[in-house]
Design a binder for these strands. Sequence first.
DNA 1: TGATTAATTAAACGTTTGTTTAACTATAAT
DNA 2: ATTATAGTTAAACAAACGTTTAATTAATCA
Lengths: 209, 209
Amino acid sequence: MHGKQTSKESKKRILQSAVKLFARQGYGNTGLRELSKEAGVNLAMINYFFGSKKALLKEILDVFFAGYLQVAGSELSSEGELSVKLRKFIHSSINFFETHCDYLLVTISELPHDDPEITEYKAKWGKQMVETIGALLEPVAVDSTMKKSIPPVIFSSILMSMMASRFLFNPVMKQVQPGELAELSNERYADIISAIFSHGIESVYRTKI
Amino acid sequence: MHGKQTSKESKKRILQSAVKLFARQGYGNTGLRELSKEAGVNLAMINYFFGSKKALLKEILDVFFAGYLQVAGSELSSEGELSVKLRKFIHSSINFFETHCDYLLVTISELPHDDPEITEYKAKWGKQMVETIGALLEPVAVDSTMKKSIPPVIFSSILMSMMASRFLFNPVMKQVQPGELAELSNERYADIISAIFSHGIESVYRTKI
DNA sequence: TGATTAATTAAACGTTTGTTTAACTATAAT
DNA sequence: ATTATAGTTAAACAAACGTTTAATTAATCA
């Protein structure tokens, strides 16, 4: 290996700053000059490391998707009762969402858009998410007499939305009732989501989880 | 009244096209020239009618917020049992979300952003939403021994997210399992959300709704 | 030490951006 | 018919955009 070695520190700072700015201002409203200034890096370094602005967005989505699928998958493959498995899955998911909050917000903001290059990423991730949550809840769906009543695509979306709700609405709600949001721990929040979803699913499927 | 009268037809077309493009591409990724072409209108008409691009976004949020608060408020003031009131509230909300799907997507995409001008709008709306849903569920919270266990800010966010989940994930999920999403009627979808949330809340508050 | 190359820089590229201007059209009221 | 004005237009504005280039720095290996 010849040449300078900075262990890609600048690249990391660009990614960090990009996630922060994209989450707070939106991808389209953030200029590369503003980003380079925030990262304390020369403008040209962004295209040097990432190739283009859109590739930088892809990288952000990739980090989030890959990281979350790993978390979700590891919870899926564990042993145990369904109720505690589901509860652990929700807790792990919400913990990941908190540690990657800005990643989550960028992802959610990009969900509705139909850029072909980005859509591929989202579809691939969405498919795996539905499979994971579908596999997790398979016992319920199989035991139930209303098996096909709720497509996995639907209750996966519902659960994902529930788990993300705190982070999506946080920027708004912290202005509505400052403090009240911060007081509630993520553990308690995850318990609430878990309780609502578990008993909700029970009632819909008329089955005990 | 002197001068031409076109009953603001151009203004309506601009707003329609703006909602459509902002929802599919994002506010920041949509240029005014592209918008004027989509609306079949001269570029200058946009600033003539709306003043600025950002004012156009504000108008979109205003239409959505005002319309939804009216729907939500009318459900709140009606008489009846809590369980059916809640169910009707959820049905009306989801119906409104469907008829204003692109408005909803624009709003969700803008939720995390911290533009001061827009933040005012969102905070005002968020406050009224929390009050509305809080008032709807007040009987439960009062009867329960765990009264302060869930801040209204939290379960309002959860319910909003649940109701919006189908529309937020639709652009992704229709690529995951085409058809399966469209098959499920909004009535059935609202019933599912209603059942999950009602029984979920019951279990958390250990109270019968 | 000298060759090699990853990292960094300032400057410029051509587009596209949101906005404004001034002229023009067409309708409604006097 | 004349005037006033809402609506519409093409053209231009400076500023910002994403991207590229060529030159320079500095660390690594032979």
